[in-house]
Design a protein around this nucleic acid. Structure first.
Lengths: 210, 210, 210, 210
DNA sequence: GATGAATGAGCTTTCATTCAT
DNA sequence: CATGAATGAAAGCTCATTCAT
């Protein structure tokens, strides 16, 4: 028993060390990708910044694109879960309806990206929104988020609106918001996000209206 | 005078030759970019396909990205002018209103990209929609197109709608359509363009309604 | 005493374990060398296939070439002893003379390599026949085989043939057979082993004739 | 005409320069392959020794093995043609028969390799004799040599010996000589080439005897 | 203007070997 | 004894760009 315990603790130490190294690589790569850009960042930069040897990188990731995708995925899951938590609290506290729920969700996301342009740029430059949406759609880590959105739109369904109509409208909204985010947060052209927000929200309300 | 004429014709011949070479390079690059992709296409490929020496490429273009941007610009101007002509004819023939005019314009563009996915993919993968819009906005070659869109929305302005509101709505529409085009024409996920078109057009009508 | 016995049996167990591991490494390496080839096989492959850690490999062998040479040596000793046994039986049974004895020895070897091309290729590609002969010449494990060949050629010696002549002729025969084996069994060019065998045997008879 | 002449001479100059560079690479590679060995020689070494950039190497050769094979081929053709010339002179001068002709041919080759062990080792270590024979057999540059060997053996054919028998015997001789050359010239074990030569030649005479 | 040979920095990836655990 | 994470040298190869002709 004790011996087994020893082995376990040994394993844990090793795994903890591995995790630490992996995270150092994640952080280094994220920092470099967002400042220098993908093509300007070479594997050696990442390794050096993480304080490991070049070969070590290949122990954890297949190549530059592997770590990029994983970074984007991890960050996204974090953001979306956070957004969901905030939305749920708000909805409960204010006993908000579906439209306000969706708008709050979007508002929270926009705020997040506004204060984190680097990540937005990273996603946009290296992963199209379309592909991104696909990846997130298949994610098991986001089941909760999906559940929440489902519940949010239940109101509609019980109101007799066709399920297909709801889903298509949601798709339209997602595409619209993503696209606007990029143009208005990153490029700030032709409108800044604050300039366009009222119009955007008005549009979303129109889309969700019957 | 005659001598000058000779010089002129000589000049013209040389210029024609240069133009020919430039066009051959454009065609070769477009073909390769759309089939092999940007990163897989190397300068030598383009030169070889165009039937010129590698060094000649640098006589006409700065690098791969230079020719890419110029290709996209040229193609876009062509498409937009064509779309404009079709729209104007239609509007005149049917004495259509502004909403129908805008919808026709979009419909024509979608049809074009549906039958020319390669170009859509090229633009999307190598130039963000936002940047693209910016370039076209500054283009002198598209003054006519802009004029037409202006005239189209005049109806609104005379109807007492604030100019700023119109422009923001147009921006929202452009972003929405571009985004949907990419997802639904290239990825065909989660909906094909034909599946989402009715919802898209309904949305645009909602946006343009007062 | 009893305690010592315990220690002995403990030692044996450990040694048996070590031997088992070593053999697993031998088998794994042989399999990989003959299928994937030397350069394509990396130490990690061998360790993985043998079910041990990479570092363990270095506990038993210096490097890839060390295990290769040992594999070739082990396999060769086995084959030659087997060939010797078969030859001795045959010679006794048929009361065969020296020439027939030598030819049978060669025939048995050719048959063996014909049905085990992988090993022949391994020897040839990684150890020249010349070097190979040298290693086997120094082997203590093959004293019996050498003794047999000695006895086989005794007939000649008693027949008054100079010992030096016999040995040189044997050398010529060995070189010839090895060379033909490679070309005709592995490459099958310009003749298959079956096509060239009659001529080869005729030549050997000529060499051994006075 | 003059213009064309200019272009021709320009072309010639360029081609001459290219040839010069190619030859420099050949020489550098040969020197390095024979002294340091194949695996120890890296492309950069070759380029540096030839006084060109690494990339230039790839303009002329696919990789290390490409240049190696070409070097071996070139050297071999030279040697064999030279051997042929010497043999033909000798045969004419001494009105020698076929057996003496063949023996002279072999003797010349052995002498060559004895004074050029590096090349022999290069061929042997990197190209099996079998493969080597095949390449030379397909060579158009050696048609003359083949013709000469054909004429040499004509004597046999007219003597009523089956063509197949002649060719098989020649094959046996070639394999034997190659194999002996390597063992006795490179390894000098168990006999030096001078020690084994009398026995070798006696064997060849036996093979060629009816 | 046109050519294409030459350049060489730069990148990815592998893998034998070590050594702390 | 056994492990396997970490190392980092090393090599192959590409390709944008230059420049002598």
């Amino acid at each position: 028993m004790e011996h087994a315990g020893d082995e376990d603790s040994k394993m844990n130490k090793i795994n903890a060390k591995k995790l630490l190294k992996r995270n150092k690589l994640y952080d280094a790569a994220y920092e470099l990708f967002t400042t220098k850009g993908m093509t300007e960042t070479v594997i050696e930069d990442i390794a050096k910044k993480a304080g490991v040897a070049k070969g070590t990188f290949y122990l954890y990731f297949k190549d530059k694109y592997d770590i990029l995708n994983k970074i984007i995925y991890r960050k996204s899951v974090t953001v979306l879960k956070q957004t969901m938590d905030a939305t749920e609290s708000k909805v409960k506290a204010e006993n908000a309806g579906m439209v306000d729920g969706v708008l709050f969700f979007i508002d929270y996301l926009i705020a997040y990206f506004k204060s984190n342009k680097k990540m937005l740029r990273l996603i946009h430059k290296n992963l199209s929104w379309g592909l991104y949406r696909k990846i997130l759609a298949d994610s098991d880590d986001l089941l909760e988020v999906k559940g929440m959105l489902q519940r949010l739109t239940d109101e509609y369904r019980t109101g007799g609106v066709n399920n297909d109509v709801i889903e298509k409208n949601m798709y339209i909204i997602i595409e619209l918001v993503s696209s606007i985010c990029y143009s208005s947060i990153i490029l700030e052209e032709p409108y800044t996000i604050d300039e366009i927000k009222p119009t955007l929200y008005k549009t979303i309300r129109k889309i969700l209206s019957k």
